[in-house]
Design a protein around this nucleic acid. Structure first.
Lengths: 233, 233
DNA sequence: CGCGAGCTTGACGTTGTTCAACTAGAGTGG
DNA sequence: CCACTCTAGTTGAACAACGTCAAGCTCGCG
């Protein structure tokens, strides 16, 4: 986790955040926002935003994949959702008070911009189009969490694992044949079940020739069947 | 579900939405927004906003209590959260596209204003402070859902029912001694378990003198114990 | 080589669902 | 006034789903 400011090794010109959000602000405004922005690199398992802590920034993830993690006092974890770049992730600002109710943790090497909320807020007040765009952006991050919530509540493990495999393939790795960057334990935390249950389910899917599962490598052989399992629950 | 426009039987002067959000817009702007606002009454079990449907309004709940409900193809329901007036509830606008991913259903008689999104959007663009306030308001509605999600994923039925009882007492009915306006089936849908399991758990709590449960009437006798059960899971 | 982290397997007990039968109260119609 | 029906709530027993535990495996790394 190293910081290199002013001498940006990120190319802001290709940044979605700059292109869409900052499209509405002047060059000088962008400069002052940029001055107050930290550009950081995170490695796997490093905290980008910590549950329980105050944060005065929102996170723009320009490269890599992260998990939103909630941990109990007893040390149990659940993963609200997994997401990948490019995306804007707001912790505190979206939740009305300044304390994060979940953590954002890198599951791969990530490039991140931490954008100061106060300065951004001052622009929002001056610029309505910006705020509308921001509203759209930030709200998007909840959608996946809610979907996962619904999946978790409605379905049992078979269906939930099917959902997760479909989600990983379509939204996270963009392929039917992908190499996991998360552990079975993390899949279990995502599905809200035990690690052993994940493994049992995966081997069952493997035997039924719905997927090919070999260590970190997973290939979806029969997407239709997987969707059917997801629908049944 | 009857409509009475222009001759408002709601008193806008005591409306939180008007006081906070509309504080930032002019009287004329408020008038034009008011013209495009439907004031409606809903009875128990009526849909205020329907899952799968498009909606071009956000919901201001000025009286009553509602549930956010998600239903599967197979007819199973889960309740994302229950909330009460006064509160602003956005469906589509918060979720980046125009299709509602859950329903909002009255669980008691409700007074509701349906506020046109397009007109509101035009004010947001013109007025940054309004949009900031709106962002805060709308984001609040997700907080409870996320908390419930975490409870559901982390805990087993004992802890989830404890969570729900605490939530109902503190946030919904504002008393340790309240009369339920939802059925056991709805508690089950809230807790993500079967109706029988809810009843078994409630009678267990009753026998252990943690609560007094008599039909719709519930009294929390030992809040400390309930909190302990919630923490253990 | 030895160690540890991640993964896998099967046995077993707990938790929770399903099912079926029963109760209580509210509304309806003769 | 009494049947009747409908809905909500309740109970217990059988069964399935799931978590826990314990043991062993594999692979990368010092």
């Amino acid at each position: 986790m190293q910081e290199t400011k002013k001498e940006s090794w990120f190319n802001c010109d290709v940044c979605i955040f700059k292109q869409t959000i900052c499209h509405f602000i002047t060059d000088e405004e962008f400069e002052s926002l940029f001055e107050a922005t930290q550009q950081l690199k995170f490695k796997r398992n490093e905290y980008i935003m910590k549950q329980g802590a105050k944060s005065d920034y929102i996170v723009y993830l320009s490269k890599g994949r992260v998990k939103m993690n909630s941990e109990t006092d007893s040390g149990k974890n659940i993963i609200l959702t997994i997401t990948n770049a490019p995306i804007l992730l707001g912790g505190a600002i979206m939740l009305n008070d300044s304390i994060n109710i979940f953590s954002i943790i890198a599951i791969e090497d990530c490039d991140v911009c931490l954008i100061n909320i106060d300065i951004l807020k001052s622009f929002i007040i001056k610029n309505g189009e910006l705020s509308l765009k921001l509203l759209e952006f930030l709200s998007g991050m909840f959608k996946d969490s809610i979907y996962n919530f619904i999946s978790l509540a409605h379905k049992q493990v078979n269906g939930r694992i099917a959902d997760i495999l479909i989600y990983l393939s379509k939204t996270i790795y963009h392929s039917n044949n992908f190499t996991l960057t998360i552990t079975r334990k993390e899949i279990a935390e995502f599905a809200g079940c035990s690690q052993e249950n994940v493994i049992h389910t995966l081997t069952r899917f493997h035997k039924d020739e719905i997927i090919r599962s070999e260590g970190k490598s997973i290939e979806i052989l029969d997407m239709d069947k997987l969707i059917k399992i997801s629908k049944i629950g």
